Simulated assay, not measured.
Amino acid sequence: MKTPPIVSPQEWDAAREELLVEEKKLTRARDALAARRRRMPWMAVEKKYRFDGPQGPVSLLDLFEGRRQLIVYRAFYAPDVTTYPEGGGAYPERACVGCSFLADQVAHPAHLNARDTTLAFVSRAPQAEIQGLKARMGWELIPWYTITDDFDKDFGVDEWHGTNAFIREGERIYRTYFIDSRGDEAMGSAWSYLDITALGRQEEWEDSPEGYPQTPPYGWWNYHDAYGETTRSASAH
């Protein structure tokens, strides 16, 4: 391994400041891209999708858990899903290694919930297996449902993983964004999830359309076990 040059603290600081200029450009570009997402058109969801949950059959609307926004990740966990690397185990002990990698990164859902947003995973495996996988892998906080119809095919995730974002107006549901492939590798933090939603982080500094819910930054942040109804986004219905 050929290492970079070894320099003095002053030279290191200068090199870091030079790179920081480019990092700031990337941050501003990421914020601008999120602003464009918030101006994406919405697609009406006309079909009535059904899933199996821990307590029985549920609708797509039920997955919102009463909140305004829903993020759905299609994780590959089913009898016909190949798991790897070799020797790591197989179904039902293991899900797809990439989907498992992502599940390990998912932050506490209370922060998303405080912005009126729910995260859910969906797979083709039956609930008994899903609950066993969650317990084995420490993913108890991720709501995880069984696909029972064409939801995966209709939303571009029947052959590959992907993350769909939805919003509701009353009982009307709309698809607002979709990412897959390497777009999914950035997912896991509350910020990365909120940045793909129609309402964004809902903070006053964001470039959002007029009338979108926004509150001061920092003010709504809390410990994950200290959120209450007063911290819910102004967008709540």
Rank of each mutant, 00 (worst) to 15 (best):
A125E: 04
D31A: 14
S100A: 10
T118L: 01
L61V: 02
V45L: 03
R201C: 04
L20P: 05
A34K: 03
S192M: 08
A34R: 06
A135Q: 15
K25T: 12
T148Y: 04
Y227K: 00
G162A: 04
E18P: 02
E169F: 05
S181A: 15
G228W: 02
A186W: 10
H161D: 08
P109C: 05
F178L: 10
T82D: 14
R68I: 03
K153Q: 09
N113V: 03
E185C: 13
E229W: 00
D13V: 10
G89D: 08
Q55H: 14
I142M: 15
D195R: 12
K134V: 07
Y49A: 00
Y223E: 14
W12H: 10
D149R: 09
R172H: 14
R175A: 13
R37T: 06
D116E: 07
D149F: 04
A125S: 13
R50P: 03
Q131C: 06
F51L: 06
V45P: 00
V157Y: 01
R115K: 14
Q10C: 10
P57R: 09
T231G: 05
A135P: 10
G98R: 07
W205E: 13
S8A: 10
S8L: 08
G188P: 02
W221G: 09
Q69D: 05
R124E: 11
L119G: 02
L141F: 09
D207Q: 08
D225M: 04
M40L: 15
L194T: 03
F166N: 00
F121M: 03
